[in-house]
């Protein structure tokens, strides 16, 4: 799915997307001190949102599902739990890409917070349906921390995308 203008670009072109998802999964797996664990940003979620709004013809619900399955295996959660929430996240971000692109940064942050809240809400629903796990408001911390990370991640990924000539 490449456009003719791209063909002169460096070879890394298409790889930046899987590489960024790999890095996000790595950051999710990175050991953190116990107190910091509840605040760990949803790296995979924000990277997914970024690619959904930047290259909506490449990344959407399908990619979200695949990354979600990998997350399920890595976190030993119920298989399909993150796949479901990331599918929905990918779909919603993909659908609203034109709108989110236009937003100024602070509004983008709010949009990211909302999208991730929906993602977390789905996960807590699954928790509730599957077992006796009670999840408090602390489940929403990652949405807040991801919102703070967003501007920086946005800049980094935008540069990476431009450098690898993906559009």
């Amino acid at each position: 799915m490449q456009i003719s203008a791209d063909t002169t670009g460096p070879r890394v072109r298409g790889w930046i997307i899987p590489i960024s998802f790999g890095a996000a999964l790595l950051l999710m797996a990175m050991p953190l001190p116990t107190w910091a664990v509840p605040y760990r940003p949803d790296w995979v979620g924000i990277v997914l949102i970024y690619w959904c709004i930047a290259v909506p013809h490449r990344v959407g619900a399908g990619v979200g599902w695949s990354v979600g399955i990998v997350m399920d295996v890595m976190q030993f959660t119920l298989l399909g739990q993150n796949a479901l929430s990331k599918t929905v996240l990918g779909f919603l971000a993909n659908q609203s890409h034109l709108r989110i692109r236009m937003y100024p940064m602070w509004q983008q942050c709010t949009a990211v917070f909302l999208l991730l809240s929906i993602d977390i809400g789905l996960v807590t629903w699954v928790h509730g349906v599957a077992g006796n796990i009670k999840v408090g408001w602390s489940a929403w911390w990652p949405a807040a921390s991801s919102m703070l990370i967003w501007p920086w991640l946005f800049i980094i990924l935008r540069d990476a995308r431009r450098r690898s000539y993906i559009c």
Partner: peptide, 12 residues
């Protein structure tokens, strides 16, 4: 979206 969601729910 619907297909992928159903697959996820089925897997779960």
């Amino acid at each position: 979206l619907i297909v992928l969601m159903s697959i996820s729910v089925g897997l779960m």
